[in-house]
Computed example of a mutant assay.
Amino acid sequence: MNSMVAIWEVGDSESGNPQHVVGLPAASHGWEADWNRFGPWRPGEFPGSGNTSLPCVSAQTKSRGGPVLVCGPCTSTFDVAWNLMGQNLLPVWGAVLALSQNSGRGQLRRPWHSPPGNVYAALRLPGVPANATQQSEIPPDMLPLLVGVAAAEVLEELEVSVQVKWPNDLLLTESKIGGILIEVRGPREGGVDVVVGLGLNLVHAPPQEMLRGPEALPGASLAGVLADTGPLSMWLALHQGIRRVLESFSAMWDDSSARDRIEHRLAWLGREVELRDGPFDKTRGIVLGIDGLGALRLHVQGSEQIFRSGSVYPVTGQGAE
C-alpha cells in the first residue's frame, strides 16, 4: 500500500495551528527537488486516527512507512505531533516532517540546531498496552538504538557507513550527523502513547560554538556524501526502514538478535571510552556492548559494569556530545 505525503504549514509557535502553505520549493534546494519529484500535488485530506481528517495538498508515494504530513517552521515536530494526536489527526505510523524548527530538542531537552534543508521528523509509534509485559514489548531504552540501526541500514543502502552511538546518536567518521529521541505520554486508558523524533543533518551541521563545550564531537552533514537527496526523499526511506525494523522486533521480541544487530553498528565497540554522568561522575572502560534492556556494558577494572545513563567519550581524540 502506497503512502500519502501531505503539505500543511505550521507557524504558530505556541500551539502549532495550521496556516497557509507558502514557499516550500523556496525553502532549500533539497525541498525544491522533492517538490518537483513527488508532484503533481492535488487538494486532499490527511487521514487522522479516527473519523477525522485534515485538508491539505497531497501526493502519493511508493513508500510503505505510513502517511507523512509536511509542515512549515514550527517549535518542534514533537509539539506538532502531540498537538495533532490530541485532535485524532495523526494515526499510528503517521509522521510529521518540518522544514525547520525554532525550539527543536535533543537528549535531556537540549536545543537542536534546525535550519531548512535537514530532516526533522516525529513518528507516532504503536502505543504500549497497559497490560504489556517486559517479554512482549521492545524495552524503552532499546527503541532509540533500534531506530538508529534502521537509519544506519537505510544509509548503508546509499553507500554511507554510519555508526550508532549509545544511547541515541548517529555518527559519520566519529562526527555527529543525527540524533534520536523518544517521548512518552500517559498512562491513559489502554496504555501510553509513544513518539520518536529523528534529526539528520543532510546539508547543515551545527557550528562548534553551539555544541556542549570543546570536548564534544564535531557536527557533520551528508552534504558531501549524498547528492540530490532532499529531506522528504530521505525521510520516506528512513520512515519505511524504521517501521520495518520495529515491526519485526515487535512481532517477536528477541533481545539476543536485537543486541547483535545493534552491536554490529555500535560506535567504539572494543575501545576504551569515558562515560560521564553529570559533572563529576566519570568512569573509564572498554565497550563490551549492550544488555538486553539497552544499557551500556563496560569492562571496568577487571569486571563488567552496566550503565543506564550518561554520555560516552572516546578516550583518544575528541569526546562525544
Rank of each mutant, 00 (worst) to 15 (best):
V21L: 13
V21A: 12
V21C: 13
V22S: 12
V22A: 11
V22N: 09
G23D: 11
L24V: 13
L24R: 02
P25Q: 03
P25G: 01
P25E: 01
P25K: 01
A26S: 14
A27Q: 14
A27K: 11
S28E: 02
S28A: 09
H29Q: 14
H29G: 11
G30T: 03
G30N: 03
G30R: 10
G30L: 10
W31V: 06
W31Y: 13
W31K: 06
E32P: 03
D34H: 07
D34G: 09
W35Q: 10
W35D: 11
W35N: 08
R37T: 11
R37W: 11
F38K: 08
F38Q: 09
F38T: 04
G39I: 06
W41V: 05
W41E: 02
R42N: 14
R42A: 15
P43F: 03
G44A: 10
E45G: 10
E45Q: 15
E45D: 12
E45V: 15
F46P: 06
F46M: 05
F46T: 02
P47D: 00
G48Q: 06
G48C: 08
S49G: 07
S49D: 00
S49W: 08
G50T: 10
G50Q: 13
N51F: 11
N51Y: 10
T52Y: 01
S53D: 09
S53V: 12
S53R: 14
L54E: 01
P55D: 00
P55L: 03
C56V: 14
S58C: 15
S58V: 10
A59L: 05
A59C: 15
Q60L: 12
Q60F: 04
T61Y: 04
S63D: 02
R64E: 13
R64Y: 07
G65R: 00
G66H: 04
G66K: 04
V68S: 02
V68P: 06
V68M: 03
V68L: 12
V68Y: 04
L69F: 07
L69Q: 04
V70A: 05
C71P: 05
C71W: 00
G72K: 09
G72H: 05
P73N: 02
P73Q: 11
C74Q: 00
T75P: 00
S76I: 01
S76G: 05
S76C: 09
T77W: 01
T77G: 00
T77N: 00
T77F: 00
T77K: 02
F78K: 02
F78P: 01
F78L: 14
F78M: 11
D79G: 12
D79R: 11
V80R: 02
